[in-house]
Computed example of a mutant assay.
Amino acid sequence: MVKDYILCVDDDRTILMSLRAQLKRHYGDQYAYEIAESAEEAWEIIDELFSDGHKVDVVISDWLMPEVKGDQFLIDLHKVYPDIIKIMLTGQADQSAIERTKQYGNLAECFAKPWTIQELAETIEQAKMEQIS
């Protein structure tokens, strides 16, 4: 069975585990969930999932990560997979990085850490509705 995925990207494993647990509690089996600790690892997962016939519906990425920051990752992701819903979580992104990602990466929303699952879920649902219309 082909599953839709939510991919969470953050260099802090504790954040990843918390985020994945919240998403699982909220969405249950509606999605499958993957985590990546870097943009490079995220690309590997995304490419593998798509090559296996799966769909990545949502990518939730931290901004401040080593090597490739979340804004550049999401902008690059948009160039290859424009239909993926892109959300950024951050405690440290500057406003120009957020605006650049909205303009060039079709960023659905940027949330400051700590976030709430209600905020994330509302953003995901709203972005999905916008894709349909």
Results as ranks from 00 to 15, higher is better:
Cys110Trp: 00
Val58Pro: 04
Ile85Gly: 05
Trp43Gln: 07
Gly91Gln: 01
Val58Thr: 09
Leu23Ala: 05
Ala32Ser: 14
Glu99Gly: 08
Phe73Arg: 03
Glu109Gln: 15
Gln22Thr: 09
Ala21Asp: 13
Leu49Arg: 08
Ala39Thr: 04
Glu40Trp: 09
Phe50Met: 14
Leu16Thr: 05
Asp57Val: 12
Ile75Asn: 03
Glu125Met: 09
Lys128Glu: 10
Asp4Trp: 11
Leu107Ser: 05
Gly91Val: 00
Asp76Gln: 10
Ser38Pro: 05
Met17Lys: 12
Cys8His: 11
Trp115Ala: 00
Val59Tyr: 05
Ala39Cys: 07
Tyr5Thr: 04
Gln131Phe: 15
Leu107Asp: 02
Val68Ser: 09
Glu44Phe: 12
Glu99Tyr: 10
Val68Ile: 10
Asp62Gln: 04
Asp62Cys: 05
Ile15Met: 08
Ile46Glu: 06
Val58Ala: 01
Gln22Met: 11
Glu99Met: 12
Asp62Arg: 01
Thr90Ala: 02
Glu67Cys: 11
Ile46Pro: 07
Leu19Val: 06
Met17Ser: 14
Glu99Phe: 09
Leu16Ile: 05
Lys102Thr: 11
Asp12Ala: 09
His54Ser: 14
Gln131Met: 12
Arg25Ser: 15
Leu74Ile: 04
Glu67Ala: 15
Leu7Asn: 02
Trp115Met: 00
Ile6Trp: 01
Lys113Trp: 02
Ala121Leu: 07
Thr90Phe: 04
Thr116Gln: 02
Ala121Pro: 07
Ile75Gly: 04
